[in-house]
Nucleic acid binder design. Structure first.
Lengths: 244, 244
DNA sequence: CGTCCAATTGAAACAAGTCAATCTATGTGG
DNA sequence: CCACATAGATTGACTTGTTTCAATTGGACG
């Protein structure tokens, strides 16, 4: 029972993690967390790193501590240009579908430098049996993801390019104080894959917004005129005259 | 303590319900079901019935026993032409988001004659505390809904009208044996709201498919050439030449 | 037989995609 | 420090896909 002092990968100290309050372990007591003895490697990776691929046997899930990740899916395992289903940021979870499906249903790719906790799904599965609070926390995130997916469905189905881009920029910036400069690691191509448009079309509208002083871009950060952009995002819901 | 013999609305007999095996009560024992003493009115309604509206305080959830329901959402409680987020069929649940959100996040409208079980959310909430199996069953459905929403995101974001319609028809018919005649209560407008297209455009492509003998329509039922339609649905994923 | 509503069709307007050419910022080697 | 290479962003001209508006068709039904 001698404890080893060998430390290979840097491990997260879950107990003192600044994100614990927002994590799936939020409702556990400090004692419980210590008891779990979880091995949680702390990953720092460059942009364009593939964390896992759609269809892979699921081994790990992740908590995103800093940076951005895109979840992509392609229809029928084809190598086609993939579509980005979801964009993840500080505090989001990814890969948890592996808990019940055993395979990853997306491909996860980092955008810019990113910092994650890696959770072993087998261990996690065991603990989530033991502590229902963990399972509930994960489920709550799924419900949240569903909400977001439905919002995005609405945007893709009902809005045209101008409004779609405006709405996205507002959503992206909404977690920061109004008028502040917001980190923005996405390039035109990332945007186009998420919004279902061509890069050129995205570029045209972004350029337009900049000319109108609705948007300012500066080396990976962004400042927007929230109020005016919000108005544009509501524009033209494919305005059919509605006969009740 | 005299039991009243007054029976106003017809109540479902959950114990002998043919759908129980697929319902959220699937994992309960018969004894437990009897113990619950659930009051479950059995609703039969016409088409175009509004079950609840987006934003309403959530009082009931429903299990769809027969027929079809569309869940619509409009951005920002505007009265704009709403977009259909999800189409529900035999066995699907609706309104359960009220369990955690207290308000309905969609408007639910029946398409054609429909048959539902109405579940009181307050009661359900209590029982789901008591029987974790119920809660788990509900969560599993949410995960499923998320999967579906992501599929639809892919279709809306990556496919154009022809492929989108073909894919939808294949999905709709896929739960029935290949080549069989499938109930199809949706009109062109329902389709257009779900697929993010104009009714005219949907009509054009449906007419085209019929001329090509890919689709046969007949008074609320549908027969498709699954194989050829499937091929069309994969067509043209907005085919960008992809440089790895 | 006429009414009503959904489905279909056509023509023109508009939105978005494609292809190809610049532009710009950044980084590199000389 | 400069010339050049590179990758992403922008722009323009043109093509294709979709919507819009208006007219017509086709059933279902009283």
């Amino acid at each position: 029972m001698v404890k080893s002092d060998v430390i290979s990968p840097p491990l997260s100290d879950c107990l003192h993690c600044p994100m614990r309050a927002h994590s799936i372990f939020a409702l556990l007591t400090p004692t419980e967390i210590v008891q779990m003895q979880l091995d949680v490697p702390d990953l720092h990776v460059k942009g364009d790193t593939v964390l896992y691929r759609q269809g892979d046997p699921a081994r790990y899930a992740y908590t995103l501590r800093a940076g951005t990740v895109k979840l992509q899916a392609a229809p029928h395992q084809s190598k086609d240009q993939p579509h980005t289903i979801r964009l993840l940021r500080h505090g989001d979870l990814l890969g948890f579908e592996g808990l019940t499906l055993n395979r990853h249903s997306h491909t996860a790719v980092t955008i810019g430098e990113t910092d994650l906790c890696q959770l072993d799904l087998a261990e996690l599965s065991a603990y989530s049996q033991k502590y229902p609070a963990i399972k509930n926390a994960i489920y709550a995130r799924w419900q949240n993801a569903l909400q977001e997916a439905e919002t995005q469905l609405l945007e893709l189905g009902a809005k045209k390019a101008e409004a779609r881009i405006a709405a996205f920029l507002c959503r992206w910036c909404s977690v920061f104080p109004d008028g502040s400069s917001v980190p923005f690691p996405l390039n035109r191509n990332d945007l186009s894959e998420y919004l279902g448009l061509s890069t050129e079309h995205v570029s045209r509208w972004m350029a337009h917004f900049k000319r109108e002083n609705l948007v300012h871009e500066n080396k990976g950060s962004l400042k927007i005129d929230y109020v005016r952009l919000m108005k544009i995002s509501q524009k033209d819901t494919s305005s059919k005259p509605y006969r009740a």
